[in-house]
Design a binder for these strands. Structure first.
Length: 580
DNA sequence: CTTTCTCTAAAGTGCACTGTGGCCAGTGC
């Protein structure tokens, strides 16, 4: 009987949710949540320890949790949990994904109206039944419907960061097949779109039917949608659809170009090919009539662009947003690469809501080959995240200064993620901020302000000489929550004028600011910092997603603060904001 | 449910915001 620590932690979290639904003592539910976190972050073989009843000296695990963990670790399940679960219909859990619904409101919807699914909720909102419940007024209903709408709109979408590990594993598997000559993932994954509908695999082979057969019988496959001799489609356990095309080695570059899209980019490229007298499709570049000579041979995708007298266009730029014109003039920029990063800002530690200590974060950054790491724990307004008051912050600054003594090739920068309050003032006074190396100012509440108020609020923060950068500019959560209303244009102008950096938050749930704004921002002279917003050492890996989005936004290494060397960034931060 | 202070029982993250309902409750950070 093996159960993973993550599975155990998930069960404890679900118990907490169920207890909340039942209206249990909040401290009891908190104990289960805490228990889940303790299990997740436990240093050591927590499952084996639980099986051996060896957890009694662990802080946060008392007698009751110890017994339940023992049952989970030895039998793989927990009667207490299963009984609790049986009291509610499974669809009820989906309701918690709707913004504005917590345990109390879910309970009342279920008890009073029998609502146990998102569909049922939508119906009750539309026909007026929901409005009859206490606490559900006109605006609440509107908000619920908007949130349901967002969910439906993105029902078949997945976040880039959530599918990337799977995508790369599947690609590796395909590459290892003896009949595979070349393999790639095309489509929006290759273009680094922040959310994806499906994955498009492409394999060059002389045995296409063998490959489609192989693909549809992989262990990851949940169901087979289609399987022909050259084309197959499967669905994975998580619902993600994966298409595969098997083509000849000669066709591969054309197919790769074609299936990488975007459609708009391809339309523009095809019309350019026509001007040269060729017709371009997924199979090749063929003369459009007898007067045209045959096209030069193509071995790589880049050859297609070369033949059409274009710079090679990186897949990330293929959205028909000026890349063809730029390639025509030889003005495709050299885009930033992961290897260019020298450090990063905006990382949390156990001092607020991170799960790795200051020392662990520093070690992890050094292991990644970074020269510096900025620490930015939450400020006091983020109480639930154990936000720091000035005294604790200044003690952390001292720890950082003293840790820094031991390195001459690495440095921690002492910062904060300071809350931008409703009126645009900051959660720390200037005399606190000026003791730090830098600051990230972020919004964590009052999302509903009007566009004008919200814009003014951020501009006020940017005008503060101690605000180095703005964190997650729009506050969006991909597939879950739209960003707050902002005049991005005005904010970019102000960022350029005040020398305030706009962060590119590369937590895969955010990827904020959106890539569509970065090209313009860059042209206005705005600088970015690619920040993982890491709450644990492993999340420093998010930097790779940040690079993908930065590239999609046409950014070069010179547009990114954390591509600067330690010496450069040190002297940059030392200058007054206006002179940077 | 856990911890702690006290020894069996009490205390245990805070605050702003929003919308609604009539001065408070629920949610989210």
């Amino acid at each position: 009987m093996t159960i993973t620590r993550d599975a155990i932690a998930d069960i404890l979290d679900e118990i907490a949710l169920l207890l909340e639904l039942k209206g249990e003592n909040p401290f009891k539910t908190r104990a289960y949540r805490q228990g889940a976190e303790t299990v997740r972050n436990y240093q050591g073989e927590v499952v084996a320890m639980a099986a051996a009843n060896n957890l009694k000296d662990t802080k946060g695990i008392g007698k009751a949790l110890q017994e339940k963990l023992h049952e989970l670790a030895t039998t793989g399940k927990l009667a207490f949990h299963q009984n609790l679960r049986a009291e509610f219909p499974p669809g009820l859990f989906d309701l918690f994904g709707i913004q504005g619904l917590g345990p109390k409101k879910v309970r009342s919807l279920y008890d009073q109206l029998g609502i146990d699914s998102i569909d049922a909720l939508k119906a009750a909102c539309t026909d007026g039944r929901a409005a009859s419940l206490p606490g559900f007024g006109k605006k609440s209903i509107e908000k619920l419907l908007a949130s349901i709408d967002l969910k439906e709109q993105f029902a078949d979408f997945f976040r880039l960061g959530d599918v990337a590990p799977l995508a790369e594993t599947l690609l590796d598997t395909l590459r290892q097949h003896p009949d595979t000559l070349r393999a790639a993932i095309a489509g929006s994954y290759r273009r680094s779109k922040e959310i994806l509908h499906d994955l498009d695999f492409l394999v060059a082979t002389s045995q296409p039917a063998t490959i489609t057969q192989f693909f549809t019988t992989l262990p990851e496959v949940h169901s087979v949608i289609a399987c022909g001799d050259t084309k197959a489609a499967i669905r994975l356990e998580n619902g993600l659809q994966c298409d595969l095309r098997a083509v000849s080695n000669e066709q591969f570059p054309f197919a790769l170009q074609y299936f990488s899209g975007s459609k708009e980019h391809n339309v523009a490229l095809r019309s350019r090919a026509l001007k040269y007298g060729w017709s371009l499709n997924e199979y090749g570049l063929t003369p459009k009539d007898k007067t045209t000579a045959a096209a030069p041979s193509v071995n790589e995708e880049a050859d297609i662009y070369r033949i059409l007298e274009l710079d090679r266009i990186p897949p990330e730029l293929r959205e028909n947003r000026g890349e063809i014109e730029a390639a025509d003039k030889g003005e495709i920029p050299r885009l930033v690469e992961l290897e260019n990063l020298r450090g990063t800002f905006h990382n949390h530690t156990t001092e607020s809501d991170g799960k790795s200590s200051l020392e662990e974060m520093a070690d992890a950054a050094r292991d990644l080959g970074l020269q510096y790491l900025g620490i930015a724990d939450h400020s006091k307004a983020q109480f639930q995240a154990r936000g720091l008051h000035p005294d604790r912050l200044l003690r952390q600054v001292e720890s950082i200064r003293s840790l820094n003594q031991q390195w001459d090739d690495f440095q921690l920068f002492a910062g904060t993620e300071v809350d931008i309050l409703k009126d645009g003032s900051l959660d720390f006074d200037d005399d606190v901020l000026e003791k730090l190396d830098y600051s990230v100012a972020s919004i964590h509440g009052s999302f509903q302000l009007s566009e004008k108020e919200q814009t003014a609020r951020i501009i006020r923060a940017m005008e503060n000489p101690h605000v180095t950068m703005i964190g997650h500019l729009t506050g969006r959560l991909l597939l879950t929550r739209k960003g707050y209303d902002l005049k991005v244009e005005k904010i970019l102008d102000c960022a350029a004028a005040t020398g305030t950096i706009i962060e590119l938050n590369c937590n895969p749930r955010r990827l904020d600011m959106d890539w569509r704004h970065w090209h313009r921002a860059r042209d206005k002279g705005v600088i970015t910092s690619i920040n993982p917003d890491a709450h644990g050492t492993e999340q420093l890996q998010y930097l790779a997603f940040g690079i993908r989005i930065a590239r999609k936004g046409w950014l070069r290494r010179e547009d990114v603060l954390n591509c600067q060397t330690l010496d450069e960034v040190r002297s940059w931060l030392a200058k007054p904001k206006g002179q940077r």
